[in-house]
């Protein structure tokens, strides 16, 4: 089981339930919220290491949430759960630092992405460093270059 606490934010209770079920065995603690405002309340009380967030929600959507979180100086990884046609919101979200995107209703890769997010959230690296991972990734890209 990975170290770390996860916050899942989605306005659809059934999605919250589904994600919680899929991730319960891989994460220390899971908190849920039905909109951005509730998520902020959780962040104020609990230690969270990664957020899985629906990008389009009433009351406070995913973009407004990440904007507010960043304004508070919190650099947690945000994994956005998006549906088709939400590209404009995604373009907005990346301005504040998106960790990854997952497509609804596909759960493929969810666990892997969340574990990476939790790892990043638990031990953040200094922003100026080029990490070994980034250099390895670059070498992979160079190999693929025709």
């Amino acid at each position: 089981m990975a170290q770390g606490n996860l916050l899942i934010t989605d306005d659809e209770p059934i999605i919250l339930k589904m994600l919680k079920m899929n991730l319960a065995d891989h994460v220390e603690k899971i908190f849920t919220a039905e909109n951005g405002r509730e998520a902020l309340a959780v962040l104020e009380k609990e230690e969270i290491h990664c957020i899985v967030c629906d990008i389009n929600m009433p009351v406070m959507n995913g973009v407004e949430l990440i904007k507010e979180v960043r304004a508070r100086g919190i650099q947690l990884p945000f994994i956005f759960y998006t549906a088709h046609g939400e590209r404009e919101l995604m373009l907005e979200a990346v301005k504040y630092g998106a960790f990854d995107f997952l497509n609804k209703p596909n759960l493929d890769g969810l666990e892997e992405v969340v574990l990476r997010g939790l790892k990043a959230g638990s031990s953040p690296s200094a922003e100026e460093d080029i990490s070994d991972d980034q250099l390895s990734e670059y070498k992979k890209l160079l190999k693929e270059l025709n």
């Binding site: 960043r70 990884p77 956005f80 590209r87 995604m90 373009l91 979200a93 990346v94 301005k95 504040y96 630092g97 998106a98 960790f99 990854d100 995107f101 992405v113 990043a120 980034q134 990734e137 670059y138 890209l141 160079l142 270059l145 025709n146």
Partner: peptide, 19 residues
């Protein structure tokens, strides 16, 4: 297909690749 390196971005590689 050239390699594109994006700097001064708060978002991660995987997020930008998918976007």
């Amino acid at each position: 297909k050239p390699i594109v390196i994006i700097t001064n971005t708060p978002s991660k590689t995987e997020a930008l690749r998918k976007l």
